[in-house]
Amino acid sequence: MSNTEIQLTRHVAATPTKVWAVLTDLDAAATMLTGVIGTERITGDGYAVGTRWRETRKMLGKEATEEMWVAEVEPEHRTVVKANSRGADYTTSFTLAPNGAGTDLSMTFTADPDRSSFLARVLMKVFGRLGAKATEKMMAQDLRDIAAAAEAS
C-alpha cells in the first residue's frame, strides 16, 4: 500500500527568521497552535535533531497524544519531524522559502502503514480518506496559526 501524502503551502508576511522562531518553539506550541492542547518535552533543550516531546491534540472530537521527534534541521530552511503510532510511520516536513519580504511556508505530511501490520493496512484503506481530510484541515489551521504568530512578532 502506498503512502498517504498531503502538501500545503502558505505565504507568510514575515521573514524566514521569524517564521523559523515560531515553528521551532515547542514550548509555546499549545499557546500558538489552535489544535495543540499541550506539549511535554521528553529529551533535549531548544530545537535540534533528537529532541523528543509528547504532543496532545484534539482531532475528530477526541484527544490524542503522540510522541514526536526532530529528525532533520536546516535552520531557517527546512525541518523534519517524525512519529510512529498505531502501526504507521508519520513524517511532517516544513520548508521555508524567502519570497519578497515574506516567506513561503510549505508543510508536507506522509503516513506510511507498517508493512508487517495487516490491521494497519486495512484501517488505512478504510479510514484513509476521512483521516486525510481531517489531517489536511488541521495542517491548514497550523499554517494559519504559524503565520499569525510570525506576522505578529
Score class of each variant (00 low, 15 high):
115 R>P: 12
28 A>S: 14
95 T>S: 14
97 A>Y: 01
27 D>Q: 07
130 L>I: 09
77 H>T: 06
69 W>Y: 05
22 V>L: 08
118 F>N: 08
137 K>V: 00
109 F>Q: 00
62 K>V: 13
35 G>F: 04
96 L>P: 08
130 L>T: 12
14 A>Q: 05
56 T>W: 11
19 V>F: 11
104 D>R: 07
9 T>M: 07
21 A>T: 11
150 A>P: 06
19 V>A: 04
86 R>D: 10
33 L>K: 03
34 T>H: 13
45 D>T: 12
84 N>E: 14
151 E>C: 03
76 E>W: 00
22 V>S: 07
45 D>V: 03
149 A>D: 04
58 K>C: 08
50 G>R: 00
136 E>W: 09
23 L>Y: 11
49 V>W: 01
36 V>C: 08
65 T>D: 09
41 R>A: 11
44 G>E: 00
24 T>E: 02
63 E>T: 13
66 E>K: 05
49 V>E: 02
45 D>F: 04
118 F>L: 15
96 L>I: 08
97 A>I: 06
27 D>F: 01
83 A>Q: 10
20 W>A: 05
101 A>M: 01
42 I>H: 00
28 A>P: 06
40 E>G: 02
104 D>N: 13
23 L>K: 06
54 R>S: 09
71 A>Q: 12
54 R>H: 14
59 M>G: 05
108 T>I: 07
101 A>F: 03
43 T>V: 08
2 S>A: 14
106 S>L: 01
100 G>I: 00
36 V>A: 05
86 R>I: 03
97 A>K: 15
81 V>Q: 07
106 S>H: 06
88 A>M: 10
16 P>I: 05
108 T>D: 03
101 A>N: 10
7 Q>P: 04
93 S>H: 04
20 W>C: 01
121 R>Q: 14
33 L>S: 04
7 Q>Y: 00
46 G>W: 00
151 E>Y: 03
29 A>M: 12
107 M>D: 01
17 T>N: 11
19 V>Y: 04
18 K>L: 14
81 V>P: 03
17 T>I: 09
24 T>G: 06
104 D>I: 04
58 K>W: 06
27 D>N: 11
92 T>A: 12
93 S>T: 15
59 M>C: 00
45 D>H: 09
139 M>Q: 05
43 T>C: 02
87 G>K: 09
107 M>V: 07
143 L>T: 07
96 L>Q: 12
66 E>T: 14
56 T>D: 08
11 H>F: 14
26 L>H: 00
109 F>A: 03
57 R>H: 13
41 R>P: 08
148 A>L: 04
128 G>F: 01
101 A>S: 13
9 T>C: 12
107 M>C: 12
140 A>E: 15
3 N>R: 14
137 K>R: 10
127 F>H: 06
87 G>R: 06
90 Y>A: 07
98 P>F: 09
64 A>I: 14
50 G>S: 06
49 V>F: 02
123 L>Q: 09
97 A>C: 02
142 D>P: 07
68 M>D: 11
103 T>W: 03
127 F>T: 01
130 L>W: 10
108 T>Q: 07
136 E>R: 15
29 A>Y: 15
53 W>S: 05
53 W>H: 05
24 T>N: 02
136 E>F: 09
141 Q>P: 06
63 E>G: 11
146 I>A: 05
46 G>T: 01
112 D>M: 11
143 L>M: 06
133 K>Q: 15
133 K>S: 15
101 A>D: 11
108 T>P: 04
141 Q>K: 13
45 D>N: 12
13 A>S: 13
92 T>D: 08
75 P>V: 04
4 T>S: 14
